[in-house]
Design a protein around this nucleic acid. Structure first.
Length: 308
DNA sequence: AATCCGTGGCC
DNA sequence: TGGCCAAGGAT
């Protein structure tokens, strides 16, 4: 096949959805990981907790924390009854601790507005704190078997390569990607949900950002990117993630002290984590503004006890 | 739309 | 060694 015809074949309108569904779903049936949130006993709450934890955090680091959370808070109301600081503490070192606060807030909303059950409607899920377009679709699809385009970084990369013929998807999800995802969605809901999980798993295990495993890929023979000779990424520089010396690092150090503390922490102890006073103060103020830290009297701090 | 928000493993 | 990457969301 020439480069020209490979390019033609990469046109989204030329894709036969069924030609992708069948081999990818068959591959998933034999190769899916046995993750706890995929087991029936996880329920919608388990799926939802896992989705919060998996936002920007690898599976292997989520696993032990997920088990602790579901054991301690088996239903949304159990978490809602806790102080938000307990959620932040139990979040441990998963990163982005605002997710813990949002998950706690979502549990409160579910308890107060939805009778304690994770809502089934996409719009209702979307209205909960910490749930955006991706997570709403993921919960509706994985927990309730509904038909939604589930566009996470894995699926977007699979589509970019297999269909668009490029190495990486755009920085932010585009209207074209949503349209493509909808056009590839199987008609019946159970198959659509299976397809969502399958295409995501393919991106996570085979069609990875680096060291992609094309030799094990069930659709390698029709992947536009591979057929085009795997051209290198061309386009705007992808977003970097500098960390050392940033406010995020300082916030992380401050919150780590508060997570480990069994009693409220004097400011002098927090001051020891970072030398530069202006940045240190800005970071602590930011944590307070975000509701992750609660100032007490006399310059003492703790994880939030008040119900937001 | 561009930035901010943690943490740790990997090559 | 250090940039890159990991099932995003909020502003």
């Amino acid at each position: 096949m020439t480069a020209i015809s490979a390019h033609t074949a990469s046109s989204p309108t030329a894709v036969d959805p069924a030609a992708l569904h069948t081999p990818v779903i068959a591959w998933f049936d034999s190769n899916a990981r046995d993750l706890p949130w995929r087991r029936p006993e996880a329920g919608a709450w388990g799926v939802m907790v896992s989705e919060f934890m998996l936002q920007q955090t690898p599976v292997n680091r989520v696993l032990p924390v997920y088990e602790q959370w579901l054991s301690r808070w088996p239903r949304p109301a159990d978490l809602a009854a806790e102080a938000p600081g307990e959620a932040v503490r139990a979040w441990g070192r998963l990163g982005y601790p605002r997710r813990a606060l949002r998950l706690h807030g979502a549990a409160q909303a579910i308890t107060e507005r939805h009778g304690g059950d994770v809502p089934r409607e996409h719009a209702q899920l979307l209205s909960l704190p910490g749930i955006g377009e991706y997570t709403a679709a993921a919960v509706a699809s994985f927990a309730y078997g509904q038909r939604h385009a589930v566009l996470d970084t894995n699926v977007r990369r699979v589509f970019a390569r297999a269909v668009a013929g490029v190495q990486y998807p755009p920085n932010a999800t585009t209207a074209a990607e949503r349209k493509l995802a909808r056009s590839l969605l199987p008609e019946d809901a159970p198959t659509a949900a299976r397809w969502a999980a399958s295409s995501m798993e393919l991106g996570a295990l085979i069609c990875t950002a680096k060291n992609e495993g094309c030799v094990r890929c069930p659709i390698a023979d029709r992947c536009a990117w591979r057929l085009a000779g795997k051209p290198a990424y061309e386009g705007p520089a992808r977003r970097g993630q500098t960390y050392a010396g940033t406010d995020r690092q300082v916030r992380g150090k401050l919150l780590a002290v508060l997570r480990e503390a069994v009693a409220p922490v004097p400011q002098v102890v927090l001051d020891a984590v970072w030398d530069e006073p202006v940045q240190r103060t800005r970071a602590l103020d930011g944590l307070v503004a975000d509701g992750l830290v609660e100032p007490m009297e006399n310059g003492v701090y703790r994880l939030p006890q008040s119900r937001a």
